[in-house]
Amino acid sequence: MRTIIFRFTAPYLTSLMVLFSVFVLLRGHNEPGGGFIGGLIAASAFAIYGIACGVAPVRRALYFHPLAISACGLFFAVIAGLLSVFTGQGFMTGLWAFPAILGGDVGLSTPLLFDIGVYLVVVGSITSIALALEERESD
């Protein structure tokens, strides 16, 4: 599958897909999308990159081990749940702030943080699985 064209376009395709996945993640609260879908898109992006150019460049590009990303996501999700406990409300109560940034209302919230956590868990775990399987192919 490692044709020149595929190998040449894969990095661009991957970056575009990752960008798109972040977009899908962020708009998820109001439009179709969200952490699960975004995470799967990003994971496919890395899988494609891995098939095209081998696993080592993907690992270099990710910098962190995929499961570390996953663990970080789980940590974010737990923090998102715990924040409300410090304000005296129940675990996982949503907290919202609407600061005006660049003239528009931006909804910053613990559910958003939670969704980012979901995104990172899915990206990390699925990329880890895909890369682990691809790696065996090369030997």
Binding site: V122, I129, L133
Partner: peptide, 17 residues
Amino acid sequence: VLTAIVISFSFFAFLLV
């Protein structure tokens, strides 16, 4: 179902491996 899809995928991957 949305979460079920993702979880069944990860289990499928596990069983595959």
